[in-house]
Design a protein around this nucleic acid. Structure first.
Lengths: 208, 208
DNA sequence: GACTATTTTTTACAAATGATAAAAACTACC
DNA sequence: GGTAGTTTTTATCATTTGTAAAAAATAGTC
């Protein structure tokens, strides 16, 4: 066989890789290695759902405790204040989506989750998960690891706000998540970086 | 009995209250209600230590996984970059101190912990705790709850950076933690708020 | 109480970011 | 392929915040 365009091969490999990664087992295991039995308990509570771009999956004014894993698509978490909203998190394939405040405190949260593309999600019932936490030590540790990892990421972002200026934070994002820029509109990126869209546009024009 | 100065009574009550709250059991229980047996397992690993103001309890360039509970005193977590350091967390009586990155990823972290007063701490060995996570489901859930609660607090701070300007953030801190201002020098407060000390000074002069 | 070191405030100026509005570029859809 | 709606860029000006250096206030020590 003879390929003149290696990007064709690359595309195929990428698709195979993504397809394998986005099985619910792999998503679960990427957080914490679970024994087979525990993994099956979790998988029993999972169902696949689809929603269109623009759907608000979780709403700030409701107690939303179900959690989702992204099989395909991209979402943002945002909080609102008066007429503005700010995006404080993006989730893509393989990541876990929940309203942390709602999930943790069993009360109305501050976060809305909006689908930025048509999405395929694995849904896990909150009540079932909470029950598993109390019954299965591996699942309890899986939940612990998840929260710990998210905490470190959030702390690092808080710190980078102070040490790095807007342009540097943009460059960091560009380097670490180049595909995000292709998939998400710049207004959301700007608010994720903690600046206005106009500022981001200024930064982008300085760079080229 | 006859008191002419009720502040005397108030002081006594405050001391009784603080003393009861700062027992290691209460600190553990304030995160998550533990059964007696599990609590005793944790308590078995705890010893009381004292360190003087100025001591660096945890260092960024070491893998530091022991965790501490503050019986008496106040500490700050800071990260350094070149010649500047920024404070991103304060801990006072009843709070839990650890190098989250080190603890989570078993690698060198970004955080230093400095004692801002002479402190009395309860120390819990990391290896012992990690073992308990794998053996006791209640302790695993205690660790999960701790990380979840810290995560929500950190997310809320990240979001407030965007919605509230420096003066509002200072007022929020003043309202929520009035004693912090008495116990911590303003340079640290400024960096916690994400501004320079000069900016904070400006804000303070505008307010009176 | 005087001296030193540290912390906080003040001042003047520079740089970064925000607000607003309008133009340009891009999308979606009939 | 033209039109309406959305997103991004550009321009101008105002405001906020940072930098640097000096003065003032405070705390610590002999």
């Amino acid at each position: 066989m003879f390929f003149t365009d290696y990007r064709f091969l690359e595309t195929i490999f990428t698709q195979i890789f993504l397809a394998s990664f986005m099985m619910p087992e792999s998503i679960l295991n990427s957080i914490y290695q679970l024994p087979e039995d525990s993994k099956n308990l979790l998988l029993n509570g999972i169902s696949e759902v689809q929603h269109a771009k623009g759907v608000i999956l979780l709403k700030a004014d409701k107690v939303e405790q179900d959690i989702y894993f992204i099989k395909k698509g991209i979402v943002r978490a945002f909080a609102t204040n008066d007429d503005t909203d700010i995006t404080f998190w993006f989730g893509t394939e393989g990541e876990t989506v929940l309203s942390m405040k709602s999930y943790v405190e069993n009360a109305k949260g501050y976060e809305n989750i909006e689908l930025l593309e048509d999405c395929i999600l694995y849904k896990l019932n909150a009540r079932y998960l909470q029950q598993l936490f109390l019954e299965d030590i591996h699942i309890a540790n899986w939940g612990r690891k998840f929260a710990e990892q998210e905490l470190v990421k959030t702390e690092e972002r808080l710190i980078s706000r102070q040490f790095r200026n807007a342009k540097e934070r943009y460059m960091d994002l560009l380097a670490g998540n180049p595909d995000l820029l292709q998939r998400v509109q710049l207004g959301h990126i700007a608010s994720y970086l903690g600046i206005t869209q106009v500022s981001l546009s200024r930064i982008r024009s300085e760079i080229r």
